[in-house]
Design a protein around this nucleic acid. Structure first.
Length: 436
RNA sequence: GCCCCCUUCGUCUAUCGGCUAGGACACCAGGUUCUCAUCCUGGGAAGAGCGGUUCGAUUCCGCUAGGGGGUGCCA
């Protein structure tokens, strides 16, 4: 136990942005690294957008990434009374005052305004950015309770941090300037302020904040596209932090033991989907065979296909795993093993099958495969090697591949034939030959 | 406008005064091979600019430029 308490305090607005979830990841890792507590506070004060669905999407995103928290989540709306009491206290103690104020969007009425210092220099030591200073003269008083009586973010956020005993606030760069306000509220409330650390933004190729229009921006979208949570987690972690050596693909335990805020960057990082994609492939290739097989069975079943009894799953996994970039690719990459109604890629047919000599060649091979004493990858390969007589096997291999699978790429041909079995192989070769 | 922050290959980054500036992704070339993928080898590719400090600056300081954030009765 370290006494360190951090929190992730999202406003559930429907979808969870990657920049946001990265803040959660960094908080979670900091807590796990230091032996502290990771808490969740749902800042649901925007009644319009904070729907039950939005909250569920947020919780789902966290559980998908295995971001578990150590105390029951706190809902900010439940603390409304407490926020307003604090506002009253601030007024009573002279740190805030009530005033009539007209807002830009036409609202008017009495609001509570927090008084910022007018002289001297405000400063704090940011855990990732170092010392940050601002002249008091460059700050302004600000509203903490609206004319409709609702507390503003700055007040609610600070009061909740006090109540939850937060010791370290790790959040996005867009809050750097707010920190001066928050520190003053802590002081005025007589509370020990937390240490702050601000994470750089995730930006697009143009250096602008990464948004929906730049591609997938929400956790749910990455999940839907077949990215592994481990890969997204790992990639996001590397966007602004590194372990100090050349390692990139890290286990959760390694991340926890290596993570420090000191190693975090203070400059924005561009999101690179290509590297995430590569990392996703790394995670799929490194997945235990049984994990891959389970995913494959699930995906194939979901595609409405049935894996026959006794099918050589080990061989299929061995052939497919290294060729899988996304979970979602699996059905398309192996459907032809499980149905006679497999798709033919037109370009493949044109290139490999539409040649005058192909039908005869396929029929001849069908005969040979039928006659072979034992039908397996090794014997099929041996047979074709003989036909090739030391030259390339391409002229036999290419048409057969397209005939039995409909595509130009995929597992090794002979492994593919073994998986299909003699019967299907022969039948498909003859059927395709007849159809040409 | 004012305030705060940022700046190493196309991208993510290493370097905490000695650098032939390292790694990864991406890209290109080659190897393995029945395709694709994997894997292996190689290649091109960077210190925003200008001043200072120093025997020596990517590293420290200043200025300029560029970028981002803030400047709300949003969070």
């Amino acid at each position: 136990m370290s006494g360190i308490r951090v929190r992730f305090a999202p406003s559930p607005t429907g979808q969870v942005h990657i920049g946001n979830i990265r803040a959660a990841i960094y908080n979670w890792l900091y807590a796990r690294h230091t032996g502290g507590k990771f808490l969740l506070r749902v800042e649901d004060t925007d009644l319009e957008r904070s729907t039950p669905e939005a909250i569920k999407a947020m919780l789902d995103a966290m559980s998908w990434l295995s971001l578990d928290y150590d105390e029951p989540e706190v809902y900010q709306t439940h603390n409304l009374k407490r926020h307003l009491e604090c506002a009253e206290q601030l007024v009573r103690d002279g740190f805030a005052y009530k005033a009539e104020k007209a807002s830009k969007d036409g609202k008017s009425g009495e609001v509570v305004i927090f008084r910022m210092p007018k002289e001297g220099v405000l400063a704090y030591d940011d855990l990732v950015k170092g010392r940050i200073e601002k002249k008091a003269a460059d700050t302004q008083d600000f509203v903490i309770v609206r004319s409709d009586g609702s507390p503003v973010f700055h007040l609610a956020n600070v009061v909740d941090d006090i109540d939850q005993g937060i010791t370290h606030v790790i959040r996005g760069d867009d809050h750097v300037e707010n920190t001066f306000k928050h520190l003053e509220i802590f002081k005025a409330l007589g509370a020990q302020p937390p240490r702050y650390g601000h994470l750089p933004m995730i930006v697009n190729a143009q250096g602008k904040p990464y948004s929906k229009r730049d591609g997938a921006a929400f956790v749910g979208e990455f999940r839907d596209q077949g990215f592994l949570p481990e890969a997204l987690f790992n990639y996001l972690l590397l966007l602004g932090w590194n372990p100090g050596d050349d390692r990139e693909v890290l286990t959760r335990d390694e991340m926890i033991s290596l993570f420090t805020l000191e190693a975090c960057h203070s400059s924005p990082a561009k999101f690179d989907i290509k590297k995430l994609t590569w990392m996703n492939g790394e995670y799929i290739r490194r997945a235990p065979k049984d994990v891959y097989e389970a995913e494959l069975r699930r995906r194939v079943a979901a595609a409405g296909l049935t894996i026959p009894e006794g099918f050589d799953m080990d061989l299929l996994v061995e052939q497919l795993q290294v060729r899988t970039k996304f979970w979602g690719d699996i059905p398309a990459n192996c459907a032809y093993f499980f149905t006679e109604d497999y798709q033919f890629d037109e370009a493949a047919v044109a290139k490999r099958l539409r040649k005058p000599e192909v039908p005869a060649l396929l029929r001849d091979l069908a005969d040979r495969f039928e006659a072979i004493s034992e039908f397996n990858a090794a014997s099929c390969e041996e047979m074709v090697k003989e036909l090739a007589q030391g030259a390339g096997m391409g002229p036999w291999v290419h048409p057969v591949r397209v005939a039995v699978s409909g595509r130009m790429e995929g597992p090794g041909l002979f492994e593919m034939l073994q998986l299909l079995g003699r019967e299907k192989t022969v039948a498909r070769l003859r059927r395709v030959a007849d159809g040409l």
